[in-house]
Amino acid sequence: MKKYVRMLRVKHWLKNVLIFAPLFFGEVLFDYAMIAKSFYAFLVFGLAASVVYIINDINDVEKDRKHPTKCKRPIASGEVSIKAAWVFCAVLVLLVAVMSFAAVFLDLYSYVAVIWLVAYIVINLIYSKWGKHVPVVDVVLLAVGFLIRLYYGAQVVQVDISAWLYLTVLAGAFYLGMGKRRNELKNVSEGETRAVLRKYNYAFLDKNMYVCIAFAEVTYALWAMQSGHSGLMFTVPVVMVIFMKYSLNIEADDSEGNPMDVLLEDKLLLVCVFLYAIIAFFSIYVL
């Protein structure tokens, strides 16, 4: 059973925490009905994301077997056969469909949220089949995935998304995507599994990464100023430190630039994120 749980890549569900951003910043954090809806939506989205991961692993099985770390994944290592993986994937698709239908039927959230969920799956299937082989398009599709998480969460709790927050998430997503590509390019040999890496160069990715990080910090500061909560301005330097520490981590020679690994393996970075959450909470709900 553990091998099937590993196929879900639950660790990567951490990316879906962005779904809770509208709940938190929309000032409905103490609305228990909204909390329940958000957690339910998070679970459904996580299962949908796992469907995409499994399909991607099936499509890339031969390439993953040549990769130093991906070769340990259940499908690439042979622990789970491709046939069994497809069956498991079909069960997950059915589960996601039933849970989404139940959410609409029970009025947990509207069909619009389900449309965002379907859009996420479609975008990622396009990425898996074609987009990840096309430079720039691959990073754009990854960034769109982060935006969909944001708007999916907003639809669940019926909160509007500020244009500045939209731009912050978009720029931050571009930064993460190009950072991962840059480190893959830096650390791999000629036999690397991603053919798209041969179409990138280190200087291009490096320059555009830091354009995006600057843009994200500026738009975040503008969002904080216009949020109506003056205390949020104190989170701006914390956000800058988070970006700096993250950047320092992915500059390490042994880093592959995977956002989840970079975050979870650095206690200081986790402390900074926790500090950000505390300041933001007091600014919005206490002061």
Rank of each mutant, 00 (worst) to 15 (best):
Y151W: 10
Y152M: 12
G153C: 05
G153R: 01
G153F: 00
V156C: 01
V156G: 00
D160S: 15
I161E: 04
I161A: 08
A163V: 15
L165K: 02
L165Q: 03
Y166I: 08
T168E: 03
T168K: 03
V169G: 06
A171Q: 00
A173Q: 07
F174D: 01
F174V: 06
L176M: 11
G177P: 02
M178L: 11
G179W: 00
K180W: 04
K180G: 09
K180I: 09
K180S: 07
R181I: 11
R182W: 02
E184K: 06
L185R: 04
K186Y: 05
N187V: 14
V188E: 07
S189W: 06
E190A: 15
E192Q: 12
E192D: 15
R194Q: 06
R194A: 06
V196F: 01
L197A: 11
K199C: 07
K199V: 07
K199G: 09
Y200K: 13
Y200H: 13
N201E: 11
N201I: 10
A203H: 13
F204W: 14
L205E: 00
D206S: 05
D206L: 05
K207V: 14
K207F: 08
K207A: 12
N208L: 12
M209V: 05
Y210L: 09
V211F: 09
C212M: 15
